[in-house]
Design a protein around this nucleic acid. Structure first.
Lengths: 355, 355
DNA sequence: ATGAAAGCGCTAACAG
DNA sequence: CTGTTAGCGCTTTCAT
């Protein structure tokens, strides 16, 4: 259906492979040995070089447009300056803020990041292996399940790794997550305060920490509020997608037609809940209130604006990067598990029940 | 405000730096020379090795868990298997689909991608320079302005580059874009058909091809429909952000209070238009219809669902990657400029004017 | 303070 | 078919 019009032109001249200047070029231009250039240009070693010589070398390097070949240096030193990031799904709008936090902190420290989208079919271990073959100095894993083999694999390979957003059951490596149980407590308390008594939960995948802990938080919050177990219902979605949320919400409405509120384990699932309500001819929030989780960008513009639990996404990324940097510089150091406090953002998708 | 509870534990044992096996280890295990191993493991060269020896080598490599060091190979061959991607703003929900298309195609060809977010303050040339220092084999630029120095810089450095989403005025390098003028034609025709005569345009940055061409398409479409120039108005936003869209829309409403429709140069700007209408107490679509551009994820869930021009985002990324691969394998080849056809997606933000 | 020499892990002539 | 040799660009002892 895409009748593309393509056009093309010819290159005008030969580019003459302008191969960048090397440390040798700078050296011969200054009449010194390459190793002297290396020292002069390395902040840690430049104090071993005479000031005037160093100045001359820096000038020559600038004049030639010399940039050290990071790859070659990495081969020698064993450190690549590269960090791999395993992402669950780049298309999930909730992820970019986390990624932004990670890359900014890493970039400031001189590291570049390789982001790999695992996708539904990708094998994390396989992808990690490719990253290790590229010589990454560390890994940020945003995809792990509770008992994920990739964690042991990283430990076995001796590559520093940190977890972000989700954590593992064994707490084997450092992690930065939101307080998922507490977040669900905020959501439940909000609904209870509005007068709801018949609540449902569209849970996330139960093999992830977010899925399991948010579900636990939902149940704990209701127990504490004194709501009997038979008045609540939970349906787990197999993935954090709009479509899975829709399907789970439909099952929920089937089982408990008297529900007045649904809490979703994340905002993408909440979108699916919106879809399911529309399909059943139910109005949100008049018939059913909905709460999401994450406060991903632009959910304030939905119809209705989504009440959700805001998690500190950018800060999570930033802290994860710092943890990784610490781990890289001292692999033996104790490792932290950071838990950030979430916040409820009340918007238009929640209201008091009619009955 | 974030009272984080942190905890920590100690590592249990020394990881004993398990340093990966090298080609030498495989060679000595098989009693052959390292170069034979190299040949046996390289698809292009394995035909030079006796079948039984090759089989034995592959078995030994697998047994040892040997993975070739891509960095070292790259140093030798001059090709890193790395491609740099310059992104305007990873947090823009319109970008991930393009990125997904790029990385998938590149990944299949054995390349890894380094994505760099330029951000409002970053210097593209500086960032490209860092990527070149890492030895990237090519670059995908999704950020260029019409006369962007970074393009000449890449050409000068002899690094293959392709443009995606936006193109340059000189058509100096291959590109894949949507037909921006035609897309605006679709938007205008839709509004004209609904009966609108007083239209406004929140244009994008005029130093980008998307900003300039979409504006041109808007004006051309109206001229063709016979709408006099004095009945239309254009305000350019300095950036593709919700906030800039809001400000531009407010200026537009100030200048032409009788507008019945606003076409935004992209969906993020359209969100700002929604904000501006709300601030002025105007209803969309009853008082003012709104059309966006890009069909970024989830704009179908806005209130009201956004009528927009869908561009082939993932396909753009995919085609750009293929163009780059072609350019890498033959830098002298003619280069293509691919223009993909857009499509109007009519939703709830457009309706016939009341008057 | 600087030069010489070795080598990170791999590949690509060049011999045999 | 396989071994030898050399070297990608850089850093880092070890000598001066």
């Amino acid at each position: 259906m895409n009748h593309n019009h393509e056009s093309s032109i010819r290159r005008r001249a030969k580019p003459v492979a302008p191969s960048r200047p090397t440390i040798k070029d700078v050296a011969s231009r200054c009449g010194v040995h390459p190793s002297t250039v290396s020292r002069a240009l390395s902040p840690a070693m430049s104090h071993l070089v005479a000031d005037d010589v160093a100045k001359q070398i820096r000038a020559a390097a600038a004049a030639l447009g010399y940039r050290p070949n990071v790859t070659a240096a990495g081969l020698r030193t064993g450190r690549s300056g590269l960090v791999g990031v395993l992402a669950p799904d780049i298309a999930d709008p909730g992820f970019p803020p986390v990624l932004g936090g990670v890359t900014e902190a890493l970039h400031k420290a001189g590291y570049a990041t390789i982001v790999v989208d695992v996708g539904p079919h990708g094998s994390p271990v396989e992808l990690v292996d490719r990253l290790i073959a590229r010589g990454v100095d560390g890994l940020v894993l945003a995809t792990v399940s509770l008992h994920d083999p990739v964690i042991e694999y990283c430990i076995g390979a001796g590559v520093p790794a940190v977890l972000v957003i989700r954590t593992d059951a064994g707490k084997l490596v450092p992690s930065v997550v939101s307080d998922d149980e507490a977040g669900m407590g905020l959501a439940v308390d909000h609904l209870i305060a509005l007068g709801h008594r018949h609540l449902g939960h569209v849970a996330g995948p139960q093999d992830t920490s977010t899925g399991a802990l948010r579900r636990a938080g939902f149940e704990a919050g209701l127990a504490q509020a004194g709501v009997p177990a038979q008045e609540i219902a939970v349906e787990a979605a197999p993935a954090y997608t709009r479509e899975a949320g829709r399907a789970a919400a439909l099952r929920l409405l089937e089982r408990k037609p008297d529900l007045t509120a649904i809490v979703a384990a994340n905002d993408l699932l909440a979108l699916g809940v919106y879809d399911a309500l529309a399909a059943r001819g139910l109005n949100c929030p008049k018939d059913v209130s909905v709460v999401g989780h994450n406060d991903m960008p632009y959910v304030d513009m939905l119809s209705p604006p989504l009440t959700t639990v805001r998690i500190a996404q950018r800060e999570m990324g930033d802290k994860a990067a710092r943890l990784l940097l610490a781990k890289i510089s001292d692999p033996e150091a104790r490792h932290d598990h950071i838990v950030l406090a979430p916040e409820l953002i009340a918007r238009g998708s929640t209201a008091s029940p009619r009955r």
